[in-house]
Computed example of a mutant assay.
Amino acid sequence: MDARDGDRELKVVLEGQYKTAYELLEDAVAVGLTPIVIGPPGVGKSLLVRKFARDTGRAFHEVFFDELLRPSYLIGTFNPAIVLQRGYCAEAFEKGPLITTMEEGGVFLAQELNRASEFCQNSLLEPLEERSYYIPRIGRVHADERFVFIATANPAELAGTHRFSEALRDRLRVWIPLTYPDRETELKIIRVNCEPLTLAEDVLEKIYNVVEMARKEKELEMSVSIRAGIAIARLSARHLSKHGSIGNDDIAAYARSVILGAARGKKWLDLEKTLDDVIRGAMRAYG
Rank of each mutant, 00 (worst) to 15 (best):
P71I: 08
I230Q: 10
L199E: 08
G57N: 13
L271F: 00
G76D: 10
F108V: 01
Y73H: 14
G32S: 07
G287W: 01
G96A: 01
P40C: 07
A156L: 14
A231E: 15
E195A: 15
I190Y: 14
L33W: 03
D144P: 06
A92Q: 01
W175N: 12
E15I: 00
R146Y: 08
G87P: 03
A231I: 07
E219G: 15
T152F: 11
T152S: 14
M283T: 01
L158G: 12
A90C: 00
A228M: 07
R146M: 04
R140P: 03
W175L: 14
G57E: 14
A282D: 03
R264S: 01
G105F: 05
I138K: 10
L48V: 09
E145Y: 09
R163H: 11
A252E: 06
E212T: 07
A151W: 07
R227K: 14
V278K: 03
D5P: 00
L204A: 08
F65K: 09
G287S: 08
A255R: 02
I251G: 05
G160Y: 14
L109P: 04
R215E: 06
G247W: 07
E201D: 15
S132T: 04
V258H: 01
L14A: 02
L10E: 01
G96D: 02
I207K: 13
P196S: 12
P41G: 08
A237G: 14
Y22N: 03
A233G: 13
A262S: 06
H162S: 11
R4L: 05
H243G: 09
I207H: 11
F93R: 03
G42C: 08
R70Y: 09
P35V: 11
S225G: 15
T20H: 05
E205M: 11
R115F: 02
M213Q: 15
A214H: 07
L109T: 04
E15M: 03
G229T: 07
E67T: 15
P196L: 12
H239R: 15
Q85H: 04
K216T: 07
G42Q: 10
Y22I: 05
R70G: 06
N122F: 00
V192C: 08
R70N: 13
A116S: 12
R284G: 00
K45V: 12
I82E: 11
G44S: 10
V203Y: 08
N248G: 13
I176K: 10
G57S: 09
M283H: 02
H239M: 09
H142E: 09
T34V: 14
A214E: 05
F78M: 05
L69W: 09
N114C: 05
E103Q: 12
L269T: 02
H61N: 15
H61F: 14
D277R: 07
R191D: 12
T101W: 01
V211T: 11
G44Y: 07
L168N: 13
R280Y: 01
E62M: 15
E195V: 12
C89W: 00
S165P: 13
T274Y: 00
K266W: 01
R50H: 14
R169V: 07
S132F: 02
P35Y: 05
I75P: 13
A21G: 04
F149E: 11
V12E: 00
A143Y: 06
A21K: 04
F60H: 10
Y18N: 03
L260P: 00
K216R: 15
P80H: 03
V63S: 12
